[in-house]
Design a binder for these strands. Structure first.
Length: 142
DNA sequence: CTTCTGACA
DNA sequence: TGTCAGGA
């Protein structure tokens, strides 16, 4: 299946995300209130995050550690788009793909995330190298 | 047992 | 941000 779609599928509950990002549930919900992330919801109103949501949280975490406040982070990342905007699929189509992904999620995908998390620690070189040193901005927003 | 919202000695 | 309540 398309990787773009796979990254936007609503897969994990907040508990998993806590472990993946080392953020508390309180922080994750707080960032959502400020539109820094916009996870999907189940019928029971439970949050379901996608890989992109988790990566987004890691970006936020990195910025917070650099001393930026909510306003500063918004300046750098902007507000989050809803998963439905990024995933124009019917619920049936999504449910089908979620099953497909969940078969081999525990192992491979989890390691994928941890690998990417390490990629965030040192200064990156790729297409995202334009994430100009937020350290300079922290002076204005902290 | 896990998650959700609201509130604050 | 932590933490507790009270309900789903």
């Amino acid at each position: 299946m398309n990787d773009e779609i796979r990254r936007n599928l609503a897969l994990f509950p907040i508990g998993i995300v806590q472990k993946l990002t080392d953020l508390t549930a309180r922080q994750i919900r707080y960032y959502e209130q400020h539109m820094l992330v916009c996870p999907a919801r189940t019928e029971g109103n439970q949050r379901l995050f996608s890989f992109n949501d988790v990566e987004r949280l890691l970006e936020i975490k990195r910025l917070i550690e650099q001393g930026l406040n909510i306003a500063g982070i918004k300046t750098v990342l902007g507000t989050a788009k809803t998963s439905s905007e990024l995933l124009p699929l019917t619920e049936k189509e999504q449910a089908k793909m979620v099953k497909e992904v969940k078969k081999d999620l525990s192992d491979r995908e989890l390691r994928d995330l941890l690998k990417k998390e390490i990629l965030h620690k040192p200064g990156r070189t790729g297409v995202h190298s334009n994430t100009f040193n937020a350290g300079d901005l922290s002076r204005f927003f902290h």
